[in-house]
Deep mutational scan, measured.
Amino acid sequence: LIVDEAINEDNSVVSLSQPKMDELQLFRGDTVLLKGKKRREAVCIVLSDDTCSDEKIRMNRVVRNNLRVRLGDVISIQPCP
């Protein structure tokens, strides 16, 4: 998924579009594992966002710094076991 700027300022939340959440079989409030660069990982709570496009994930600056990614970078997402 492509990293995009978050609207809310919550450090533990990322936003996906509802069709993408359905495709990944995620529900609102699920915890997910995000994988960024240099084997960096972060655990976040996923919320749906109608304004977010299907191929993007919204996260704020703190999460991006933790993953060592910038806007427009590609990250992977998976549900936490």
Rank of each mutant, 00 (worst) to 15 (best):
residue 56 K to R: 11
residue 34 L to G: 03
residue 3 V to R: 00
residue 13 V to Y: 14
residue 19 P to E: 15
residue 46 V to F: 02
residue 31 T to H: 10
residue 67 L to F: 03
residue 59 M to Q: 00
residue 69 V to S: 04
residue 56 K to W: 03
residue 43 V to I: 10
residue 14 V to F: 00
residue 47 L to I: 10
residue 43 V to L: 08
residue 41 E to K: 14
residue 55 E to T: 10
residue 18 Q to C: 08
residue 31 T to P: 05
residue 59 M to T: 04
residue 7 I to V: 09
residue 42 A to C: 15
residue 23 E to M: 15
residue 39 R to H: 04
residue 10 D to Y: 08
residue 65 N to T: 09
residue 81 P to R: 05
residue 77 I to R: 00
residue 15 S to T: 12
residue 42 A to F: 14
residue 27 F to A: 14
residue 18 Q to N: 02
residue 33 L to F: 03
residue 47 L to S: 09
residue 49 D to M: 01
residue 35 K to Y: 04
residue 19 P to C: 05
residue 67 L to M: 04
residue 46 V to S: 02
residue 25 Q to G: 10
residue 32 V to P: 00
residue 26 L to F: 04
residue 52 C to A: 04
residue 71 L to W: 06
residue 45 I to F: 11
residue 53 S to A: 11
residue 32 V to A: 05
residue 14 V to G: 01
residue 58 R to I: 08
residue 50 D to A: 11
residue 14 V to A: 03
residue 53 S to L: 11
residue 42 A to Q: 12
residue 48 S to M: 09
residue 62 V to T: 14
residue 27 F to V: 14
residue 17 S to R: 03
residue 5 E to S: 13
residue 15 S to C: 12
residue 31 T to N: 11
residue 2 I to M: 07
residue 30 D to P: 00
residue 17 S to K: 03
residue 45 I to P: 06
residue 76 S to M: 12
residue 54 D to H: 09
residue 66 N to L: 12
residue 38 K to T: 14
residue 4 D to T: 11
residue 63 V to F: 09
residue 8 N to W: 06
residue 65 N to Q: 08
residue 75 I to V: 10
residue 12 S to L: 11
residue 54 D to K: 15
residue 57 I to D: 00
residue 41 E to I: 03
residue 54 D to T: 15
residue 66 N to A: 09
residue 37 K to S: 13
residue 3 V to W: 00
residue 51 T to Y: 04
residue 47 L to E: 14
residue 46 V to H: 02
residue 59 M to W: 00
residue 20 K to T: 08
residue 64 R to N: 03
residue 10 D to C: 06
residue 17 S to L: 01
residue 24 L to V: 03
residue 52 C to K: 03
residue 48 S to A: 14
residue 25 Q to K: 11
residue 37 K to I: 05
residue 25 Q to A: 07
residue 79 P to Y: 05
residue 33 L to S: 07
residue 64 R to P: 00
residue 48 S to Y: 06
residue 14 V to C: 07
residue 67 L to R: 00
residue 52 C to I: 08
residue 18 Q to A: 12
residue 36 G to M: 04
residue 20 K to M: 14
residue 78 Q to E: 12
residue 16 L to K: 01
residue 71 L to E: 15
residue 23 E to Q: 07
residue 68 R to Q: 07
residue 65 N to E: 11
residue 18 Q to G: 10
residue 30 D to M: 10
residue 27 F to C: 14
residue 65 N to V: 06
residue 65 N to M: 09
residue 13 V to F: 08
residue 81 P to V: 06
residue 11 N to Y: 08
residue 50 D to T: 10
residue 63 V to Y: 02
residue 48 S to D: 06
residue 34 L to C: 15
residue 11 N to H: 15
residue 1 L to N: 02
residue 66 N to I: 06
residue 68 R to H: 12
residue 15 S to F: 15
residue 43 V to C: 12
residue 23 E to V: 06
residue 54 D to L: 11
residue 27 F to K: 11
residue 11 N to T: 11
residue 78 Q to D: 15
residue 18 Q to M: 15
residue 3 V to M: 05
residue 73 D to L: 00
residue 21 M to V: 01
residue 75 I to K: 00
residue 78 Q to R: 09
residue 22 D to I: 07
residue 24 L to E: 02
residue 69 V to Y: 01
residue 22 D to W: 04
residue 76 S to R: 10
residue 66 N to F: 04
residue 15 S to G: 14
residue 67 L to T: 02
residue 76 S to K: 06
residue 2 I to F: 07
residue 34 L to P: 00
residue 43 V to Y: 15
residue 40 R to G: 15
residue 78 Q to M: 08
residue 22 D to N: 10
residue 62 V to D: 12
residue 26 L to A: 03
residue 73 D to E: 07
residue 5 E to F: 13
residue 24 L to I: 03
residue 23 E to S: 09
residue 67 L to A: 02
residue 26 L to I: 08
residue 56 K to H: 05
residue 5 E to N: 11
residue 69 V to P: 00
residue 5 E to G: 10
residue 64 R to M: 10
residue 65 N to R: 10
residue 48 S to H: 04
residue 51 T to Q: 05
residue 58 R to Y: 08
residue 55 E to G: 13
residue 75 I to W: 00
residue 8 N to G: 13
residue 53 S to I: 05
residue 51 T to D: 13
residue 58 R to K: 11
residue 15 S to E: 13
residue 69 V to R: 02
residue 44 C to F: 08
residue 32 V to H: 01
residue 6 A to D: 09
residue 6 A to M: 15
residue 29 G to W: 04
residue 34 L to N: 01
residue 79 P to L: 10
residue 66 N to C: 03
residue 65 N to F: 07
residue 18 Q to P: 08
residue 33 L to C: 14
residue 42 A to W: 09
residue 52 C to L: 13
residue 11 N to D: 04
residue 70 R to P: 03
residue 34 L to T: 02
residue 30 D to N: 05
residue 59 M to P: 00
residue 4 D to G: 08
residue 59 M to V: 06
residue 78 Q to Y: 13
residue 51 T to C: 09
residue 7 I to W: 12
residue 43 V to P: 04
residue 9 E to F: 09
residue 76 S to A: 10
residue 18 Q to Y: 04
residue 42 A to E: 07
residue 31 T to I: 04
residue 80 C to S: 15
residue 76 S to I: 05
residue 66 N to S: 10
residue 55 E to L: 12
residue 5 E to M: 14
residue 59 M to E: 01
